[in-house]
Structures are given as structure tokens and as C-alpha cells.
Amino acid sequence: MTRFAIFAATASLCATSAAAEIVKPTDVTFVDGVIEASLTGTPGDPAAGAEIMDKGAGNCIACHAVTELDHLGFHGEIGPPLDGAADRWSEAELRGIVADAKQMFDGTMMPSFYRVDGFIRLGDAYTGDAHQGEVEPLLTAQQIEDVVAYLMTLKDE
């Protein structure tokens, strides 16, 4: 029974320290638009990142084309194609761009996916009313890491 108690306590401490590693949107440090360290301390999952690229929270392909994801249908042309993204930007640069592209690209229309403050006029979905309560980021810290992991697979051949 003592070994079980020690194991349970160790597992609990590990879970607590892992949860403590998540950087809140308000605590993110950008240096010239770049976020050097992981937001979670956990590697991103490229497969999960590819799913986020489609409709839903990320919906990256609404603005960007990705040849590998042609099976998903409509791809936008507002943003640059993401083919070869890993050759153009480092992992830290991609993390900064996905989290809040406005830190790197002044005037961009790309949404800030990991930001919760500083908005000029935040609405309540499609109601026409002002937002009430706390603002949640469009993507979680782990979703940011997943998208970055997927983008790091997009290399020119």
C-alpha cells in the first residue's frame, strides 16, 4: 500500500507541474513577434494540428492554401500558401505567428488565436451585442503547439 501511495503522490505532482507549464495568453512573451518556448512544455501533435487547419477553431484553410490538404475543399487566397512554411519560418516564428500574427506582421488581418485582451470591439458571436465575461482564446495553448507541429512538417520537396 505504501508503494501505491508514493506512486499516486508522484503522479499527482507530475500532473500538477505539467499543468503549471501552460503559459496563459496574458503571460506570453513575444520578442520581435517570436515565441521561443513552448506554450505547454508538451510537443505538438502534427495530426491534431492538421485537423485544426480545417473548419472549426483554427480554420486556417479559409485564408491559406495547403496542397497536402487539397482533399478538404475550399482553400483561401487571402494569406500566403503554407506549403514550405517550415522552410520559411522557424518553429519559434511559427508559434508567434499562429498565437498572434499581429506581433510580427503589422496590419495583418490574421486573427490572434491566443490572445484574450486588447481588442477594440469584441462582439458576442453573431448577436450584434457586446461580449460579456472573460474572453477565451480561439485556440488553446496545446492547439497552438499542434498547429505549429503540423506546419513544421510542411517543407519544400
Rank of each mutant, 00 (worst) to 15 (best):
residue 1 M to I: 06
residue 2 T to C: 03
residue 2 T to D: 06
residue 5 A to K: 13
residue 5 A to H: 08
residue 6 I to N: 09
residue 8 A to I: 10
residue 10 T to H: 02
residue 10 T to K: 02
residue 12 S to T: 14
residue 12 S to P: 00
residue 14 C to F: 06
residue 14 C to V: 13
residue 15 A to Y: 05
residue 15 A to K: 06
residue 18 A to S: 05
residue 23 V to W: 01
residue 25 P to S: 00
residue 26 T to M: 01
residue 27 D to F: 04
residue 29 T to E: 11
residue 30 F to I: 01
residue 31 V to P: 02
residue 36 E to A: 10
residue 37 A to L: 06
residue 37 A to M: 04
residue 39 L to D: 10
residue 41 G to H: 06
residue 41 G to V: 05
residue 42 T to G: 01
residue 45 D to K: 12
residue 46 P to H: 08
residue 49 G to Y: 11
residue 52 I to W: 07
residue 56 G to R: 13
residue 58 G to Q: 12
residue 59 N to R: 10
residue 59 N to F: 11
residue 60 C to Y: 05
residue 64 H to Q: 10
residue 65 A to H: 08
residue 65 A to S: 14
residue 66 V to D: 02
residue 67 T to W: 04
residue 67 T to R: 13
residue 67 T to P: 03
residue 68 E to H: 06
residue 71 H to M: 03
residue 78 I to Y: 07
residue 78 I to L: 10
residue 80 P to R: 15
residue 87 D to A: 03
residue 87 D to I: 11
residue 88 R to C: 03
residue 91 E to N: 03
residue 91 E to P: 00
residue 94 L to A: 12
residue 94 L to G: 12
residue 95 R to C: 07
residue 95 R to E: 10
residue 99 A to P: 04
residue 101 A to S: 15
residue 103 Q to V: 08
residue 105 F to Q: 15
residue 106 D to P: 03
residue 110 M to T: 14
residue 111 P to S: 13
residue 113 F to N: 15
residue 113 F to H: 11
residue 115 R to T: 00
residue 117 D to Q: 06
residue 118 G to L: 02
residue 118 G to Y: 00
residue 120 I to M: 11
residue 122 L to A: 12
residue 123 G to C: 10
residue 126 Y to E: 14
residue 127 T to S: 15
residue 128 G to R: 13
residue 128 G to T: 00
residue 129 D to V: 00
residue 129 D to Q: 13
residue 131 H to S: 01
residue 133 G to M: 00
residue 134 E to M: 01
residue 137 P to W: 04
residue 137 P to R: 11
residue 138 L to G: 09
residue 140 T to H: 06
residue 141 A to G: 07
residue 142 Q to D: 12
residue 145 E to F: 05
residue 146 D to I: 04
residue 149 A to E: 07
residue 151 L to G: 05
residue 154 L to W: 05
residue 155 K to E: 12
residue 155 K to C: 04
